[in-house]
Amino acid sequence: MSNISVNSLVKKFGAVTAVDGISFSVDPGEVFGFLGPNGAGKSTTISILCTLISPTSGEASVGGFDCVRDADAVRRSIGIIFQDPTLDNGLTAYENLLFHAYLYGMDRAAAKKRIEDALELVGLSARKNELVRKFSGGMKRRLEIARGILNYPRVLFMDEPTIGLDPQTRNMIWEFIRELKKNTGITVFMTTHYLEEAEFCDRIAIIDLGKIIASGTPLELKAGLQGDTLKLSATDPKGLEAEIREKFGMEPKITDGGITLTVKQGDEILPALIKGLSTSITAVSMTRPTLNDVFLSLTGKNIREENGDPYGPMRSYARKNHGGH
């Protein structure tokens, strides 16, 4: 049975349709990614699945529980890492987690054990009694992840989990998610507009203007494109082109100092080409399609890599200065 099941989900805000009849399902233990530009409807979908807002129509269930009728059961079985930080800067790391533990009904002894374990896991044990105000962005994210898994959720939601983080922290978080998946079999649902991040997912759905326009494994999606681009440089491009036409029956294009070919399974064809050609080749290169190419071919536009929250910097400024609430 699927852990997340969404059927013809629609969410309208006044005249704006943020989510426009999407359907998908996520199996237990899967890392499922929602890839799309800002404003595509990713966060709205997460908010519905997390029971923060109710859908205009359609159905959504998480862990077998309906997100509207059985919101409390859904809440008990999920962990969430929101796009913007949701920590209390005026509390210590430990207190933030203790707050969470009590909200989820744990008793003192169980809470203490789980908090120590979670802090250990994200490498914040040594700083558990420091105020979160003093933490860097990466540390705050790690603490939020520790908090997200504190109640042993069946499904972990992550809304743009690595937005605004340095590459090192980003890699650390990805390593962590992989470990978590391996050790606990947790289901992860995440949104992203980072293409590299989507590559980590078992399956992705590409969403634009509130609609899912493609879904599948990253490999499947990319295989749907024409294929890999091979570039062969040679001192005699014309001779090379003629030989490839003759021996392999392909249609290469002559470019500056060589030829380019678009083929499926470039990694298998390239060695065969090199072996079979007598014209001397000076350089070879192969480019695989990226998810951006997929997005580009489906929508005719690039996924913009920009800050998801225009007020982020302002808010973090305010946080630093009035963090005590």
């Binding site: 997390c50 923060l52 008990r76 929101f82 930080p85 949701t86 920590l87 707050f99 946080r319 609430h325």
Partner: peptide, 15 residues
């Protein structure tokens, strides 16, 4: 404040 700084969400998604 809690709403402005996101902490309210942490409370609202709790069971």
């Amino acid at each position: 404040w809690d709403r402005e700084f996101g902490f309210l969400k942490e409370i609202l998604v709790a069971p």
